[in-house]
Computed example of a mutant assay.
Amino acid sequence: MTTQTPARTVPAPSRPAPPARRPRRRGNRSPFHPATWTPAVAVLLLLGAAWTAVAAEHPYILPELGEVGTALVTSPLVFLENAWRTLRIALLGALIGAGSAFVLALVMSEIPVVRRALMPFAVVLNVTPVVALAPPLVVAFGFGMTPKVVVTAIITFFPVLINVATGLRSVPPPVLHVFETLHASRLEVLLRLRIPSSLPYTLAALRVVLPLSIVGAVVAEFVTAGSSGGLGTVISNAASTARLDFVYSAIFCLAALGVLLLALVTAIEHRLLFWHESQRRASS
């Protein structure tokens, strides 16, 4: 008598579980998405409505937006030429101030006695009102471009000095120990480790001082008004004749210059610091 073995049941293959949906990251949103630009446009419309209401009630305080636009359209060369003069002073002053601050920060990071000797004087220079320094600079250098560049350089000097000095000292100790075990020279440590580590701090300082250089150039033009033009001179002359449309047109031009400089530094930062954690978080 033969016994039949029971047929073995083959279990049906289990269906793989659907992959978990990743949460949508806000950083991947396109800048042209309505959710990106709608809040800014709404705030801009509210500011425009408030401006119109105040200008209608107090025309001696604010001009109509149409008058400001008319001034920009009817006299474009006036604003373009003076904007270029202000921008030239701002860029040259920022180049001198930021460049000298970067070099001094390198020296102070390598020679501590220089840092202890010069840092108090840098702090005193930073807390001194730049408006008080402008008149003696005009007396010393005349009514040309030099005192304006010096004032702008003084304004942009200290933030770059502090940030670069902090960045040069922010090297992780384990990485520094690796360089020491490899018997790297001080120059190699400076070029290959300290300066790259200070780039985020340096570019963060530039994001502040480049738009701030516009402020320095305008302050210098206020003090030396009537010498060689610039948007500061346009504002001073227009205010003396109660031309509020020209005053606010020049202010809008200054704001546009500041935004352009900030956008330039931001683009450079994204280009150079693609490896840094801050840029990874911004792009995620």
Rank of each mutant, 00 (worst) to 15 (best):
M1Y: 15
Q4F: 06
R8V: 12
R8A: 07
V10S: 08
P11F: 02
A12V: 03
S14R: 10
R15L: 04
R15T: 04
P16E: 09
A17V: 01
P18D: 08
P18T: 06
P18Y: 03
R24T: 06
R25W: 13
R25M: 07
G27Y: 05
S30P: 01
S30L: 06
F32Q: 05
T38G: 01
P39S: 05
L47D: 00
G48P: 02
A55Y: 09
Y60G: 11
I61W: 09
L62F: 12
G66S: 14
P76N: 00
P76F: 11
V78A: 12
V78M: 12
V78K: 11
V78G: 10
F79E: 00
L80F: 13
E81N: 11
E81M: 00
A83F: 00
A83V: 01
A83L: 00
R85Q: 06
I89W: 06
A90I: 02
A90L: 09
A90W: 02
L91Q: 05
L91I: 12
G93F: 11
A94P: 06
A94F: 10
I96V: 15
G99H: 07
A101E: 08
F102W: 13
F102Q: 06
V103S: 06
L106N: 01
V107N: 04
P112E: 15
P112A: 11
L118H: 02
P120F: 01
A122L: 10
N126M: 13
T128N: 04
V130M: 03
V131W: 01
A132V: 09
P135F: 04
L137V: 05
L137C: 07
L137E: 14
V138P: 09
A140C: 08
G142C: 15
M145Y: 14
T146F: 08
P147D: 14
V150R: 10
V151F: 05
A153T: 10
I154Q: 03
T156D: 06
F158M: 07
I162R: 12
N163T: 09
V164A: 09
T166C: 04
T166D: 08
V171F: 01
V171I: 11
P172V: 15
V175D: 05
E180T: 10
H183P: 03
A184F: 08
S185Y: 07
V189K: 15
V189A: 15
V189L: 09
L191I: 06
R192L: 07
R192C: 14
S197F: 11
S198L: 13
P200G: 13
L203G: 14
L203I: 12
A205Y: 11
L210G: 12
L210K: 13
P211T: 04
S213A: 15
I214A: 10
V215D: 03
A217E: 04
A217G: 08
V219E: 01
V223C: 03
T224V: 14
T224G: 08
A225S: 11
G226T: 06
S227L: 02
S227Y: 00
S228G: 11
G229A: 07
G230L: 09
L231T: 01
V234N: 08
I235W: 03
S236C: 07
A238F: 15
R243F: 05
R243A: 03
V247D: 01
S249E: 00
F252Q: 05
C253P: 03
A255I: 01
V259A: 12
V259F: 13
I268R: 14
I268T: 14
E269C: 14
L273P: 12
F274V: 15
S278F: 13
S278I: 12
Q279R: 11
R281D: 08
S284D: 10
